[in-house]
């Protein structure tokens, strides 16, 4: 699924590299817990995986596609097609309804739209189903985003990440604003969806207590040669 080898990345204007990873492989369907204190290069790794940044050395392949070999537009397309993202909080566009926010997930990707088509379902219907599976009933779906609780907002963001079946879900501290109960419910729902769609999850957090829920945990400090 994901192969990282001999990765070396430094932000422009910085002499010291931020991230050096010799090797990291992630299997398809794996639920990986990536933890590390702030400043350990988590965000950098995520933007490399999402193809926002490219490494100066080494390679990142996702689905056998070497991101470094793609140009900017193709990387954008690749991200739109294959990666769903959930942020820490404030994930949603305030001027769209929760339903529209979910539909936005496949708005910029032909492939994700096509995936829905082969299932014989339209984006709106699929968004409804996803939201309901994540515990948001119809009354929530068309409300203003600002009226939703943070837990509900994060579920909308999760639905948006999953719509159109991207192979990889990147979650960047999605539970840091949630209380313990909500956090566990959210993570379980995330896993249900991921298993259902056979998606790979990379879950980033500084909260080590979550790590037991995952198939595998990786400490960024442990694998990042730059932090040594």
């Amino acid at each position: 699924m994901i192969q990282i080898s001999d990765l070396n990345f430094s932000w422009p204007g910085q002499s010291k590299p931020t991230l050096i990873i010799d090797e990291l492989n992630i299997e398809k369907g794996e639920k990986l817990f990536l933890h590390g204190p702030s400043g350990s290069g988590k965000s950098t790794l995520l933007s490399l995986l999402a193809g926002i940044q490219t490494a100066q050395k080494g390679s990142i392949s996702i689905l056998n596609e070497n991101l470094a070999k793609l140009n900017d537009a193709k990387r954008d397309k690749f991200r739109a097609d294959h990666i769903g993202t959930i942020f820490q909080n404030f994930n949603l566009l305030p001027y769209l309804s929760p339903l529209e926010n979910v539909m936005l997930g496949c708005n910029f990707s032909r492939r994700r739209q096509a995936n829905l088509k082969t299932q014989g379902i339209c984006a709106r219907k699929k968004a409804c189903i996803l939201l309901e599976e994540l515990g948001l009933d119809t009354s929530c779906q068309n409300r203003a985003v600002s009226e939703l609780s943070i837990g509900q907002q994060q579920r909308v963001a999760a639905a948006r990440a999953f719509i159109g079946q991207p192979e990889l879900i990147i979650a960047d501290e999605p539970t840091s604003a949630l209380d313990a109960d909500n956090r566990d419910i959210f993570i379980n729902q995330l896993f249900e969806q991921a298993e259902h769609y056979q998606a790979t999850i990379i879950f980033v957090s500084h909260d080590k207590s979550l790590s037991s829920l995952f198939d595998r945990q990786v400490s960024l400090n442990g694998i990042n040669g730059a932090s040594l």
């Binding site: 999402a50 926002i52 900017d72 537009a73 954008d76 397309k77 991200r79 739109a80 097609d81 993202t85 942020f87 994930n91 949603l92 566009l93 936005l104 997930g105 708005n107 910029f108 990707s109 948006r160």
Partner: peptide, 9 residues
């Protein structure tokens, strides 16, 4: 957010 869902510059 738009970038994360695949919007290009």
């Amino acid at each position: 957010i738009l970038r994360s869902v695949g919007a290009r510059p």
